[in-house]
Computed example of a mutant assay.
Amino acid sequence: MRFRSVALATTTAVLTAAPVLADVNIYSYRQPELISPLTDAFTAETGINVNVAFLDSGMVERLVAEGDRSPADVILTVDISRLTEAVDAGVTQPLLTETLTQAVPEQYHGPDGNWWGVTTRARIVYASKERVAEGEVTSYEDLADPKWKGRICTRSGTHAYMIALTSAYIAHHGEEAAKTWLEGVKANLARKPQGNDRAQVKAIWAGECDISLGNTYYMGQMLDDPEQVDYANAVYLAFPEFEGGGTHVNISGVALTKAAKNYDDAVKFIEFLVSPEAQEIYAEANDEYPVIAGAEASARVQAWGSFTPDEIALTDIADHRAAALRITEEVDFDG
C-alpha cells in the first residue's frame, strides 16, 4: 500500500494500529492523485485530517481479515459490483442521513445506505473519426449486428466493467437475449479481448478495429498523457442507448465501514462528498459526472457530448452479476 496524508506527514503505523493522528482513515481503490484535491478541500473546510491508504486489490479480503480491528472508517471504490461485494462480505454498515438521501438519486445508492454513489461514468463507444460516421453507433443492441464484423475491440468480457454492461443487458432483455447478444458481439470482434479500455482506443488509432467499448473518463486520461493523446484525437465518443432505455452508467462510490472508529468524522466526510463543491472537485479530477442535481461536469467532459442515463437501478444490475458472468463464460467470450 501507498499512504498519503493531506494535512501532515504520517507513517504507515497510522493504519496498522489504532488511529492516532488521522481523524478519518480511508481504504481506496482510487489513486491518491485522483482524490487528493477532494480530501484537501475537506480538511481545509473542517479541520479534520484524512489519511488515505491506496490498495491495488484485495480491499474486501483485507477488511474481512482485520474485522473489528480494522483502522478503516471509509472505503472508496469504483463499480457497483465492487461496492456490493463489500456489502455482501459484511464489512460495511448502513448510513441514512437527510443530507445523503436528499442529495443522491435513489438509483445511485443502496436502499439501506450501505453504499453511496459519488460520481457517475458512462460505458460508451469510442469510434474512429476516419472510419465511423457520426450517428452510425446508435444502441448497445446494434453492436451484435454483422455490419460490425471484424471491427470491434474490447477488454475481457469478465472484467467488472463488462460484466456490469452485460448485467444491464439482462435487466433490459433477459438472459437468453443477453447470451445471443454476447455471441453476436464476439463474432464481430477484430481480435481476442485483451488490455484495458485505453488499449482498445490505441488499436483503433492503429487501424486494428473501428470501434471499442470503454468508460468515458479514459478520454480525459488519454488527453493528459503525451504518449496517448494521439489515440484520443483519433476517436470520438458515441453514446449508445438500450432499446427502451438510456446509456449505461456506473459509479464511483463510498461506504462506511462496519469497524469505523471515527464514526462522526467519517459521516461528515461522506456527506461532504455529495456537497456541490466536492461534487465538482471530484468529478473534474476524475473526468466523471457529478451524481447530484445542479452540480456540473467540467467543460472538457461536457464537450464530449450529452446523454440520457439509463434508469435501471444499479441494485438491479448488481443482482444479475452472477448470470452475466455465467453466460459470458458459456459463450467463451474471451476465447
Rank of each mutant, 00 (worst) to 15 (best):
K179V: 06
I80R: 06
G246M: 05
T10S: 11
S81H: 13
N114R: 15
V331R: 05
E288D: 12
Q302T: 13
W304R: 08
H173S: 09
L55N: 09
D316L: 04
E85H: 13
E227N: 13
I75V: 15
L165E: 08
K258R: 14
G157E: 10
A160F: 10
E141R: 04
F272L: 07
E130L: 09
R198H: 09
L314P: 03
K129G: 01
T11F: 05
A144S: 12
D230I: 09
S306V: 01
F42L: 04
S70G: 07
T77P: 09
Y27M: 05
T328S: 13
T308F: 04
A7Q: 14
S275Q: 05
P240C: 00
N196Q: 09
K186T: 02
R121K: 01
L273D: 01
A9L: 02
D264P: 03
T138Y: 06
N188W: 07
Y282S: 08
D68G: 05
E175Q: 14
A122H: 00
G195L: 01
H159A: 12
N51H: 12
L256D: 04
A127P: 11
R321F: 05
T84E: 15
D264A: 11
A187W: 02
A234Y: 00
A295E: 02
S252P: 04
R30S: 11
D265E: 14
N25S: 13
Y169Q: 08
A259L: 11
A295C: 04
Y289I: 13
A22I: 07
E288P: 04
E241S: 15
L96I: 14
T92H: 01
A324G: 11
V331F: 05
T43Y: 15
Q200C: 15
W205Y: 15
Y236P: 10
A65T: 12
Q221N: 12
T138G: 06
V201N: 02
W116D: 04
D68Q: 14
A322K: 12
S275K: 06
T166R: 07
A297V: 00
K202D: 11
